[in-house]
Nucleic acid binder design. Structure first.
Lengths: 212, 212, 212, 212
DNA sequence: GATGAATGAGGGTTCATTCAT
DNA sequence: CATGAATGAACCCTCATTCAT
């Protein structure tokens, strides 16, 4: 069996086991067995548990980024791009629950080699969403470019949106039951985002004092 | 030294170590040493690592729930209650980063005894927020109770809100740097929530088709 | 069983196994079993294989030094001191063949932590012998202090003597058969040393040219 | 490339690696790589690590013996033969430090297949030196064959000489610094040997009682 | 002959946990 | 209660060795 194939099987198995057990509790024995290979072969191809984990995180992060990017048509309107990006995000995380678990839970809790990759993924997502929100706002502003969104507001909204998306994706994967489906969640988020934009652009804000 | 005090010290130490190292990497030796107690005593009081972890999760979940509940005055307006609840949530998680790390990261990744507790906490939070949103919507609807929010929409919004809150709380604890402060984050979320409500109540929705 | 006793048993076992198998081939399992303790206890007391090896080398080096030093009466004549030192050396190495095997073979072949200890032991022995030879020469010189031994000649002789002693000690331990006994060897060496001194002091040297 | 050449390359590499790392720590991977051959070929030619080690020891022992023998002219005087033999010994060990390290350190500590070869080498050396010493003594005895050396004394001296030579050779290879050069060492040993012979032949002995 | 794929066996190390004092 | 002594079980990792191509 060619190396490439074996290596992919190993990564698949590792992602599954890391997701199920956590980094520390995952044993190389279990990963090797699930991959249908012997332990020394895993070490030959992937060097160490740490490297294997790093490879998993990188692969999953790249795959998620690729899914989201592929869903966004560069020439579409901003809110269309946001919508398709969100849908792709939820679809991908729903289809790769283990990968998402590794990215969202394990990568950030298990130190040096993997954490930066997860951080980078998140920053990229937030940056992407921030740009899309800003673009949406600009488009919507129409003729008078007057009240486009302040930069930090777009960023705050993006953080909230990504946070909500991340958390909901994990929640949907963890819990089986009355949890909104991926599409519904995307719609809700889209509503919040779009609708929030409308109001923010219109200068309408909630303040504590404003309410009796 | 009375048992209650000792036990609290142990839990404090355990939460700190579990947060810093993760469940598996945390060692009973380190916990006992940090607690200033002997290892056999830890076992006498808390039986096993698993039980100790469970006790930590329960205690931290209860404390967070108590903080949020205490911040909500039953007679205040709905959006005031939501505002104070959110602020309390962010304040508490910022003041107990280790506890929050255990609840949000460790509890959900480390199997049977702790995961249900974390799940329950989240459901409670979502339920609380859903009720507050529904109440807000009802209040705002004023005379004509016409377009009050559909139940599943309130629930979806609540999920998004709680997800965003959770993720942002973790993010604020993890990252040092240009991250919105707890108060700013609460304000952003409040804005999104309120503003989302306004539009949803007004029947304004985003739909894919609505855009050319 | 008190820690001190256990620790000595462990060192005894370790010296035996290291001598028999060599550093790398020695297994902590075998050492622990021979010591009558469990492996974790060995690690608790002695940290690691490397540290254990270092402790063995240090202990055996100290014991050998102590034996030789104890045999030398400070007020005796120089050649008497040399004689007793040599006898003590051969007696000790014959009584502790494993210790000597570790010092002479393993310590110098197995890297950083132990090699310096073995080097130091050897330098100390050579220094001691050099001083004794010089003292013997001075004593023997009688009234005219004229032709006392040149320093580098004493040192050369000392190196040769120690080298011979070391190698013969190892040889006597390794091979069973027609090998001179410890006492005979000491006598031979003593003869060579004393007799070499006589000639060197008398200016008699061997040179290649001197012989047709 | 003919088998003979390849095999020599393998042995060269193996000697180097065995000397540097020790028998156990040496890896067949490193040896094969250093030899510029594939691992299966190493196994095809030399069967196993043990056999490879044995072949190394045998080759190095034979080479050393050959060097020493070649340096000895059968018709020269006995002490001339001793002198040239010693010089050849020190020259060879200085020029093949790895080989000497394998012979003197590794071969004797690593069990069955190699130890006898090293033992045999040493016995041969001691026998050779014993014969040379006896011959020297006989020559020097001149007209009156009275006080020729007792056999066990020649043997004792030979053991000491070989021991000193071995140890000093190893010492010179190991330590860099103020260590006597090969030639100086040979001269010192020669002095000791010759000078010892003179006295022994003259009936002068050191005895403990002889000194007050 | 060379290469890549593959593994059984074993070694160093750690840890949760117990028990006598 | 606190302490020290003690361990079974597992985990990460390596290596000599083989076989098909």
């Amino acid at each position: 069996m060619p190396r490439e194939v074996r290596e992919r099987q190993m990564l698949d198995a590792a992602v599954e086991v890391f997701a199920r057990r956590g980094y520390r509790a995952a044993s190389m024995d279990e990963i090797a067995e699930l991959a249908g290979a012997s332990k020394p072969l895993v070490y030959l191809y992937l060097n160490s548990k740490e490297d294997l984990f790093g490879a998993c995180v990188r692969r999953e992060a790249d795959a998620l980024k690729a899914s989201v990017r592929a869903a966004i048509e560069p020439d579409a309107s901003a809110d269309d791009r946001l919508w398709h990006g969100l849908r792709a995000f939820f679809t991908h995380t729903a289809e790769h629950p283990d990968g998402w678990a590794v990215l969202s839970c394990q990568a950030r809790t298990n130190g040096e080699p993997a954490a930066p990759v997860a951080d980078e993924l998140r920053q990229e997502m937030v940056g992407l969403v921030t740009r899309l929100i800003a673009a949406t706002a600009a488009e919507g502003a129409g003729g008078d470019g007057s009240a486009a969104l302040a930069g930090h507001e777009a960023s705050g909204l993006a953080h909230a949106l990504v946070g909500a998306a991340e958390s909901l994706a994990g929640w949907a994967n963890t819990r089986t039951g009355a949890v909104p489906s991926a599409k519904e969640t995307a719609a809700t988020l889209m509503n919040v985002a779009w609708v929030g934009l409308e109001n923010l652009r219109g200068g309408r804000r909630w303040t504590h004092a404003a309410r009796p």
